[in-house]
Every structure is written in structure tokens, then in C-alpha cells.
Amino acid sequence: MRRERNFGLDLVRAIAITLVVLSHATFFFVQDSENLIVVLIRTMGAVGVDLFFVLSGFLIGGILLKEIEQKRTKFSNLLTFWKRRWWRTLPNYFLILLINIGILYVFSKDLPDTIGSYFVFLQNFSDPQSEFFTESWSLSIEEYAYLILPFLLFCGFFVFKDRENSVFLWATLAVILMGFLLKIQFYMNTDSLSQKNWSSMFRKVVIYRLDAIYIGFLLVYLMRHWPDFFQRFKLGFLLLGGSVFAATHLLIYIANIQPETHLYFFVFMYLPLISMSCGLLFPYAIGMKRSGTFNGLIYFVSTRSYAIYLVNFSAILLCFYYFVDLNSASLMMKIGLCTIYLLLTLSISNLVYTYFEKPILNYRDRKLR
């Protein structure tokens, strides 16, 4: 199974989840902070999620293009695609959702009034979600991305027979355009936002973020149709992506660009620039060879990344707050607790992957080839 995986994409996945977990680890030391190092680490954690989005779009778009190549463009094929996605994403999600509900019950905390919406991924569809199970916001975006564009694609395949590749491109561009129009509506009806409010009201809301995944669709389409071009200039794309990423954040720092003063930048420019700079890494990453030294570690982290993402914050980190007053804890105690947090995250996610996620995926692969 390990030989079937792409090492470069596994590395991307491992980097993304590492950025997320390290950003969460800073909460053992400070809550809200303007310290440059803390802000940088937490910014990179947010970038890790965007990297996941582009990677998901790249992989799912590749699966759909393979369906097109093999002439599997009937609605029965769409249903099989959805079933495979749901077997991949839903069991882990519902398991950790129930665990989070149980944690609140044990510590006599009230469930949010919107708890029912979490079972149908509506907790952040068009409005900010509650503070409960906060990391679930990205799962809602991914689930609707898997529903909306693939459905439109297969409708297009039915209408425009023998033009499936054109349908894939134009439907993707059309949905991205629809998202842009929704962003215009958001911008026109919003006066000013703090960084935190921008994140909850815009960055983590489904209808404004689907384009992050669909950029991955466009990328895999372009790389499939012009493979020689992307292979030839893969290092150039890597350097360009890194330059765009660095220049964007350097501009924000030097010019002190904030949502309160430059809302248009954070609505229309910042997130697409981050997604595109992440995407430019893929032509280089996809051709990377395995590393004998770190291959096992990268494989371990990559395969357990979904479980790590779901368990690390709400199910593990926040539990420390019920037992320890971190504000009054010594530095050595905070370091010790952070170390325990990292070990628990790896151990519990490994248990979830080994005894829950992997058996379900094996069952899926037997039933839905």
C-alpha cells in the first residue's frame, strides 16, 4: 500500500498537519498574543488548513478526471464517488463529534443550541459556527465541495456528451465565479471586521471558501493537459509559489494591513493568493522521490493526518483547560503539558487510524471498487 502512495503528496499532507498542530501547541503558553513569533506560528497553522484544501481539490479533481478518461460519467458513477468519499470522511467525523459531546457532558458543560447542525455540516454554511468542535469548520467546506461541483459536473456530462473535459473546466470556473459574487455581497454588506471576526465570519464559512478546494481542481486539470510544461518548470513554480507566499505576508507586516483597514484585501486577495501559492508547490512535490531517512515518519504522519486533525484540539488540548490553570502554570509545567499533548495526539490518532479508520477504508475498498 505504501508503494502506491505519492511520496511528495504525503510530504505535503504531513507538513500541513504539522503546521496545524504546532499552531495549537502555542495555546499552552499564551492565549491572545501579538508576539511576532506566536503570530507567525498561528498564521502558518491557518496556512496548513489551506494546504489541505488545495491538496483535497487536487486529489478529488484527479479522481474525477480519471472517471472522465474511463467514460464513467453516469449518475451511478457519481453516487459511487460520493459513497467512497462519505466512507472516507464521515465515520471519523461522527466518532470525534460524539466524543466531543461526551466530553462536554462529563464536565457539565452546555451543548450549543446549534448542535443538530453539526450532524449535517450546516454549523458554518453561511454564518459563523459556535466555539464547540471548532476544527469542524473545514470539514463542512470539504463536504460541500465534494457535493456541489461534482453534481454540476455530472449534470454537464449528461447534457454535453463527448465534451466532458470542457465541462470539467468551465463548471469549475463557473463555481469559482459564483463564490466571487458571494464575496462581493459579503464585502458590500460589511463595514469593518477585526482579525478574529474576519476569521469566524468569512475564512471559516462554507459559501466563501469553496474556491480554496476548487483551485486544486483547476491545478490538476492544467497539470493533466500540459504535463511536460509543468514538469519542465516545476522548480520555477516552487520558487514562484514561495515568493508569492513570502511577499504577501511581508506586505501585511510592513504595511500593517488588517481587516479593519483593508477589508477588500482579506476578502478578495489574501486567501486566493495563499491557495495559489500552495498550489504552485504541487508540480515539484508530485515528482519527489522517497526519502530513506524520513519516509517512515512521513508515511505515519500523513496516513494519520485526518485523525490528528480531528482529535488534537477540541478532544485533547481543550481538556487540559478543565484540569490545569495554564495562566498560573510555570514555564516548565507548560512545556511538560505541551509535550504530553503532542504525545497524546500522536497516540490517540494512531489508535483511531489503526482500529477504526483503516478497517472502514478496507471495507469501503472491498465493497466499492
Rank of each mutant, 00 (worst) to 15 (best):
V175M: 03
R224P: 00
Q195Y: 13
R13M: 15
R13W: 15
T114A: 12
A212T: 14
W170I: 07
N350A: 15
R13G: 14
L78T: 03
L152G: 00
R42Q: 12
G242A: 02
D211S: 05
I141V: 15
A145K: 13
D110N: 14
A171P: 01
E4A: 09
D110F: 13
Y355C: 15
V352T: 02
G45T: 10
P359V: 11
F202S: 01
S117F: 08
Y321S: 07
F323P: 02
N124C: 04
M44N: 11
I274D: 09
L263N: 12
D191H: 10
Y187I: 10
F157W: 12
F53T: 01
T43K: 02
I17R: 04
M269P: 00
L239D: 06
F157D: 09
F125E: 00
S275P: 00
S117C: 02
T80A: 04
F154H: 12
M288V: 10
Y214F: 10
C155R: 05
S275K: 06
V267N: 14
L177N: 00
M276A: 07
A315P: 02
V20A: 07
I17D: 04
S23K: 10
L326G: 11
G242I: 01
G241L: 06
D211H: 14
V175E: 08
F157I: 08
N256T: 14
Y284E: 00
S108R: 15
M1K: 00
E135Y: 00
I115L: 15
F133M: 03
L318R: 05
Y93S: 11
V267G: 13
L152C: 06
L297S: 12
R364Q: 00
L78S: 06
F217P: 11
A145M: 10
S130L: 06
G116Q: 15
S277F: 05
R369P: 00
A145H: 11
H24W: 13
Y118V: 07
F52P: 14
L280R: 15
L368F: 10
L368D: 05
I360E: 11
N189M: 03
V205L: 02
